[in-house]
Design a protein around this nucleic acid. Sequence first.
DNA 1: GTCTATACCATGATAGAC
DNA 2: GTCTATCATGGTATAGAC
Lengths: 211, 211
Amino acid sequence: MNAPQKRSFKQQQLIVREDAIIDAVNGLLAKKGYDLMTMDEVAAEVGIAKASLYKHFPSKEALAAAAMIRLLENTLTYVRSLDPAMPALARLRSILQWALEVRMAGGLPTLPAENTTLRDSLVNNFKYVGKVLDMNELLGDLIEQAKKDGAIRIDLPTEVVLFTIYARSCDPSVDYLKMMGQYTDQQIVDFLLLTCFNGLGPDPSPAHAPK
Amino acid sequence: MNAPQKRSFKQQQLIVREDAIIDAVNGLLAKKGYDLMTMDEVAAEVGIAKASLYKHFPSKEALAAAAMIRLLENTLTYVRSLDPAMPALARLRSILQWALEVRMAGGLPTLPAENTTLRDSLVNNFKYVGKVLDMNELLGDLIEQAKKDGAIRIDLPTEVVLFTIYARSCDPSVDYLKMMGQYTDQQIVDFLLLTCFNGLGPDPSPAHAPK
DNA sequence: GTCTATACCATGATAGAC
DNA sequence: GTCTATCATGGTATAGAC
């Protein structure tokens, strides 16, 4: 049976397997971070031998890069799926909300801010860097549109707003609030959206007077 | 004691040496984080042999804990030094500003949000936990005072504000902005204070001064 | 491509001389 | 208390059988 179906089937098998590996990596990356994640754990989670991992991905760094790239692709897909008729600020809110919900569900590793090991390997990964640039452009356009709409402070440079939104998606206050166990995931997301876009200062437009 | 002067002098010598060690740890912790910091690096930075480190501190965890405790003590000292006549919100701003300036100068490790290894050892450290509780109480009182002053949103629980301020002190957007090299440290601090207390949204009252 | 077994190395921690 | 030299552990990566 040299039929093309079989070959395609095999490739599909491979993709499914590798997707399962990336799922495991994604969870471990979110739970422990890159340095504390070991290849033994990944192999155990997937249910295969450690050596088999290396048949799919040549190194731990490549494995983590694949997970980060898939995450970026998912995010790009979500960003592009948003209704262009929606105001820019509402779209930015939706994007951050989506990222936070994914993260609360255990699916989002904290971005490689200072994690030198992973960061250094990612900046040399053309595919990853390309996706990041795509994301920066999409969000940067949204931010500038929101500024024109008067929905975002004009005295903040676009890059500052962009990095702030990135930072909020992996804000540690979410972890602390979750550990307290006092609030639902949805409440925590709402708190973070509020502090991000409105700040800690008082609500300036009290339709009904607060006291 | 039999010879108080001599013993005291020796103890001073010891303290100076251990302070130098903690200086090195502080810098490395800020630069690389706990996991990537090695005892060899610490020893090299101080200029002593690795084995000598273990005469002063029994383990890597104890060493990091000592550095974190000293940092907390310095922060507590600063917080307590603030003029009680200053409005609560202004004091909170000053505290965050101080923390950010220390950090930009290379002296503040990112808080142990997800770094499980270090975190687990710190929560079992009575001295560290005690200082954290002291800090929580001091800042919590300030936050509640600021709420009464109408300077902080009343619909945000005090813990949310507290964790938000903690999170901002180690916000990764600072690192990203610093890497860009386009802004001075002071500008970056100002951006962060603005986004923290006023949010990304537009300045609501360009005409009249805020309270 | 999957397994078991292992090479190899980095690193935390210790031994023992001085 | 400082040093040099060493141990022990754990983790990435690979070899080789099937």
